[in-house]
Design a protein around this nucleic acid. Structure first.
Lengths: 225, 225
DNA sequence: GAGAATTCTGAGAGTTCTCTGAGAAACCCC
DNA sequence: GGGGTTTCTCAGAGAACTCTCAGAATTCTC
């Protein structure tokens, strides 16, 4: 297999260089872009396996670049670089498509780790309109619909994201810290995970055997029975 | 699948031990070498999946070891240990072969992470994500699940960690001091190991012949019958 | 065999973790 | 602005977990 090709988009040459060097060092082939327009042109070629995309760009911002790429049918994975004070709700939206984000200031190692994770995951394309299935559970990301045994279940956005994350990691125990980071977007200690697990169970368990299992002292796992 | 085999080359026994202990703990099988010549002999056998190589060695230096290995057609991945003040251009040279480097003083975690990353890149499964198997015992680290003969066994976190450690060191006697250090994280004298061994036996033995054996005066061993 | 050392295991106390109901604040849509 | 929804915090109840202790059982030594 040839080296994975990465497009790094940031208006600051320093950051582009830093990220570029790090990624190259770890075996990626890297191309840089300084603005959203340029990024769109390059990414439209479909040559890239991954895009590292700053949210704050002078011309077309990162979200818009993402939106246009998706509209053009490109489902290349994207890792967003967000400033620390980016509103939590925008950050949250990112995690749904299977994409990832890294907050500035970020450690290069973290970014490389994410890049690898995204690409490893990408054997099957991280398509937006994927329908996740675990046992008799179906979650349609595009339609924001969840069914269990064919019965529609109404979920709030947070419940939906939490369930999507658990389904993506089926049969793996995910820690509360992981959930806080990827579903909520902040790392503080909080009981909110327990509360939402409770909400999900209340809605899902009446329709069949329990799917969400507690691993005491560790986290939670969605298991196929 | 067996554990990934790592050759650790450093002229300081302390560092060799430190790195060796850490890697073993994380599921690698480790061999040490004190000099470049010895390292070349060992690595030439092709038995290793990874070489951790100090650059500064008394006889043949790390770069030379690397060069000769490549010349001999061995493309085993190499992680270099470099002093902090190693010239930047030499460091850069390392990246060419797809290898990695860690600067001294290094954190053990960082090294383990790199080792995993390198092996993953090479298509070799990482040590941690493996499902450990001993006889009819299966332990899935990602899913925190244990089965014996296909039957699910519920374990508490401490029981789980203890069993994982024993399985990683299958057919070896591990002392109570080792267990206290690696499973509990403190070194005080305590009967807690005996208690937890007892718990494990109570849960595992009804499903088959005894696996955990007492080595009186020494410790315990998990043996394949 | 007898005595000593070591290990096993049942019982229990104290701590920690999880679940869930209630409620306040924020948000959204009309 | 008002009603409904959503998000998050808090706190108590209950369950699970960890570790200690002590007596029983086993093994070793003489």
């Amino acid at each position: 297999m040839s080296e994975p090709r990465v497009l790094v988009v940031d208006d600051e040459p320093n950051i582009r260089d830093l990220v570029g060097i790090a990624l190259r060092f770890h075996g990626f082939s890297v191309t840089g872009a300084g603005g959203g327009g340029e990024a769109l042109d390059l990414a439209a070629t479909g040559e890239f396996d991954l895009v590292v995309l700053d949210v704050m760009l002078p011309d077309v911002d990162g979200f818009e670049v993402c939106r246009r790429l998706r509209a053009a049918g490109r489902d290349v994975p994207i890792i967003f670089l967000t400033a620390k004070d980016t509103p939590a709700d925008t950050v949250r939206g990112l995690t749904l498509g299977g994409d990832d984000y890294v907050t500035k200031p970020f450690s290069v190692d973290a970014l490389v780790a994410r890049a690898r994770a995204v690409l490893r995951r990408g054997g099957r394309a991280t398509a937006r309109d994927e329908v996740l299935r675990v046992a008799d559970l179906e979650l349609d990301e595009a339609g924001w619909e969840v069914r269990r045994g064919g019965v529609r279940v109404e979920l709030s956005p947070t419940e939906f994201r939490l369930l999507a994350f658990l389904m993506r990691h089926r049969n793996q125990v995910v820690t509360k810290a992981q959930l806080l980071e990827h579903v909520w977007g902040f790392g503080t200690q909080s009981q909110v995970v327990e509360t939402y697990i409770s909400y999900l169970r209340r809605k899902l368990d009446p329709l069949g055997p329990p799917l969400i299992h507690t691993q005491r002292g560790v986290g939670y796992a969605l298991r196929t029975p």
